[in-house]
Nucleic acid binder design. Structure first.
Lengths: 272, 272
DNA sequence: CTACCGTGTCGCGCCATGAGCAACAACTCG
DNA sequence: CGAGTTGTTGCTCATGGCGCGACACGGTAG
């Protein structure tokens, strides 16, 4: 094959070409939202008829669907089924969901569940707040650990040297208030450990406030982070205090559902 | 080869075999949660080495991941990213609209889509009926939860104490038939939960009848309410029954579009 | 310890199968 | 009405995917 510099399909060897191309189509559609077979074929570096057949297989399984009788293609609802099955196997999401939902209705803001995954916070679940304007859906996305409330909570379950390893040496500044010094971050993480929650304002994005608390597993280790987030202007001191209280309560309830017995105090993982 | 009774892969011709098999693997993993390549190969009716290669391609894209260095496979987090891209454009109003439109023409009455928002039902969309007597446009308006069909449906997605919190202690009487007792309201909401629909007559406004049914999201939670409403004198018993049936059907169709699977039955709509 | 299952993983060779070509259909734009 | 799209479809060839079998590894029982 001469030139296929269009879409990364060659980097890590993929045993079967057509499957890889089909999956690449899914990613193309995820990025573009919509695309025609000509576009897709161009991006894959294949003939449009090839793209058409691949799309046809995806469509037969409901992973993609075409907008009109003879129109562009986009991701289909079967994806949602798979995603539901993916998170269903994670009992963190299952057990935390009722509490997260209540948290969302009580605060009126968006609730997220995140786990540590490959040096980032991976959002596993989201319950939209009661606000009329829905925020962007973060499920499946990864956000930096050092600039988010969920990230700091997840880091609080690690030892200091593990924290260093996860975040790396260079902390990118997303806003002027982003913590860029590792030692400062460690100090904050330490505070998260003793307080059991954290509030982050304008560190990832200006005008975005979030408060998070840890969800713990049977052994007391941090398995996930539960957060409430919304526009900073909606979080005055009183609401922030109330949201903090509710998030901690919901996280504790979730922890209890996962078999964690709160010994009244936050117990550290080791006994030294 | 003509013996593929293992997994439905034959119904509507899928242009490219390997892709279809790979997608079938995703469904297998979605159902089973975990599976080894031997299992997968058996279910697909192919050699395990074939299954291994297909899984390899899926793994290269992050759609599946193996539990251990040399272990079983399960769905991966890349699915969540795709789902995020899918839900980004998948909002209740847009997906429900075709069914709502159909519902409006079939019943001849006005159809509304509402969501729970800050202790009230917020109307997001409205399709006017064919009758000459048109109600005013309710889009963007908020109506009390305890005196409307949409409100009761939305409440049916909550726990009892959450219902109490949403409606507050004092239920205002808009008409003589408005439910003003919280316990009575809870009983009605409970009936909505088991029946899957609700009829409200003259509770918000004298002479106004409405029937509503819940629209559910991927996780089965109530994300919106779909209703048909009109003057009471136009709703005799027969029309009410028919409207109820149609509303429930339209709501179910909308739910399906949002990825909700009604009491999970495996696909059997093939062979046509 | 050895033999025997089981698993996931990999090399090889045949041929089914997927890819490219080109012609077709439908739809938009001047 | 023609020139430009678009998505769709036979056809044909060789490429890429398949099944076979062997290997590596981890248990378990003898």
């Amino acid at each position: 094959m001469s030139n296929n510099s269009e879409r990364g399909a060659d980097s890590t060897a993929s045993p079967v070409q057509s499957v890889d191309r089909a999956l690449a189509i899914l990613e193309i559609l995820a990025d573009a939202g919509e695309a025609g077979v000509t576009d897709i074929g161009a991006q894959l570096g294949v003939h449009k008829s090839t793209a058409f057949r691949l799309v046809g297989s995806l469509e037969a399984r409901g992973l993609v669907e075409q907008t009109a009788e003879r129109g562009k293609y986009r991701l289909g609802v079967a994806i949602l089924r798979l995603a539901a099955a993916t998170t269903a196997r994670l009992d963190v999401v299952q057990e935390a969901r009722p509490f997260a939902r209540r948290l969302a209705t009580d605060t009126g803001e968006t609730v997220n569940v995140a786990v540590l995954n490959g040096g980032a916070a991976l959002y596993l679940d989201q319950i939209a707040g009661s606000s009329a304007l829905q925020p962007h859906n973060w499920v499946g996305q990864r956000v930096p650990l050092h600039a988010t409330s969920n990230g700091k909570v997840l880091l609080s379950g690690l030892e200091d040297d593990q924290v260093r390893a996860e975040v790396g040496p260079d902390l990118r500044a997303y806003t002027p208030t982003t913590v860029v010094d590792v030692d400062v971050l460690l100090a904050e993480v330490a505070r998260v450990r003793e307080r059991g929650h954290v509030v982050v304002v304008d560190e990832l994005e200006h005008g975005l406030t979030a408060v998070a608390a840890p969800v713990r597993g049977v052994h007391g280790d941090v398995v996930a982070s539960l957060s409430v987030s919304g526009p900073t202007f909606r979080f005055d001191a009183a609401k922030l205090a109330r949201a903090t209280e509710l998030v901690v309560a919901a996280a504790d309830d979730s922890s209890r559902r996962l078999g964690h017995r709160p010994t009244g105090r936050v117990e550290q993982t080791s006994s030294n």
